[in-house]
């Protein structure tokens, strides 16, 4: 059930395409969240986003954006919302400056507001020196940057970003992360669909996972990992581990609460733990106490990846 302050809410929303049905979709997003919207190709992410933007009409159920119906009350619902589509195809005959001016006019911004915002946004996304180039001449990554810039025009309160990091170089990814965090710090809300789970893990505060048109999960990232993973593994890296006599250490780690099994690994030890436990501090202390030279300690694989794959397969990871 949507909370009264939710900026986005779906209540049993269904889109029936005939041979395929998306929904019923029920979830809400509160202000200040950065929500990762995950799901495999064809799972219904884009349809859900397009219902939210009032571009397609749900067959049944309700959708609210800024507490308004995005279809019936499209203008007011979208007043403070920015959208960057997946693989944006922007008007190739315009320049970045002209595209942002067009966006400003659509938003009803005055000349001064436009002139104030435009260079800042182009600078933020790293396109200030390309502002007079035709969009047709820009690279895929630059078009992606421009798409995010047009979404951020007009100081929106909500950003809906469909795969915003595709085609962006590493420096751009870092810049975008910072841009999005600042946006949320200033009171904004972001819903971001992505297949790059490391990006979601780094940026998002919560998740919505959709598969075959159904919402599989809505909540925090850690809660998702706990729910989906039966166990997690910590890799304990010890310098010159072959020479290190680790029998005592294995016994002491095994006795820690939450530890299921300890086994040798090429660089040290692999410690399997219960998903709701975190004995990393104790393990590091024990390694040092037993004379080991600890060089690294961390989860052995991307937990979100594992949890996500487990959710999509429908079984807990082993």
């Amino acid at each position: 059930m949507a909370t009264p302050e939710a900026v986005i809410s779906f209540e049993q929303a269904v889109k029936d395409y005939g041979p395929k049905e998306i929904g019923p979709v029920t979830f809400s997003v509160g202000p200040g969240e950065i929500v990762g919207f995950l799901g495999p190709n064809g799972s219904g992410k884009s349809t859900t986003i397009r219902m939210l933007l009032g571009l397609i009409k749900p067959t049944s159920g309700t959708v609210r954006l800024m507490q308004r119906d995005p279809l019936a009350d499209h203008v007011r619902a979208l007043e403070r919302v920015g959208y960057s589509p997946e693989l944006p195809n922007l008007q190739s005959f315009l320049t970045p400056r002209e595209l942002l001016q067009l966006t400003a006019k659509e938003l009803g911004l005055g000349r001064k507001e436009t002139d104030d915002q435009l260079p800042v946004l182009l600078e933020d996304v790293g396109l200030i020196q390309y502002q007079e180039y035709k969009i047709a001449k820009l690279s895929k990554g630059m078009v992606q940057r421009l798409s995010v810039a047009q979404a951020m025009m007009g100081s929106p309160k909500v950003l809906i970003l469909d795969e915003p990091m595709i085609g962006i170089d590493p420096a751009g990814v870092v810049k975008f992360r910072s841009l999005f965090r600042d946006f949320v710090r200033d009171g904004g809300t972001i819903v971001m669909s992505s297949h790059i789970l490391s990006e979601v893990e780094a940026l998002c505060t919560s998740l919505v996972v959709i598969h075959s048109g159904r919402i599989l999960f809505r909540g925090g990232i850690q809660a998702f990992i706990r729910e989906r993973l039966g166990s997690r593994s910590i890799l304990v890296e010890i310098a010159d581990s072959s020479a290190f006599e680790g029998g005592a250490l294995v016994g002491r780690i095994s006795s820690l609460a939450g530890v299921k099994r300890v086994s040798p690994a090429p660089a040290g030890l692999l410690v399997e733990i219960a998903p709701d436990s975190d004995p990393r501090a104790e393990i590091s202390r024990l390694v040092v106490e037993t004379g080991g030279n600890l060089v690294g300690l961390g989860y052995s694989r991307s937990e979100l990846d594992e949890a996500y794959i487990s959710a999509i397969r429908g079984t807990p990871a082993q």
Partner: peptide, 15 residues
């Protein structure tokens, strides 16, 4: 065809 309609119509403008 060019995918520009959805960007234009995702703004606060009526159809």
């Amino acid at each position: 065809e060019q995918g520009t309609a959805e960007v234009l119509l995702s703004k606060p403008v009526s159809r």
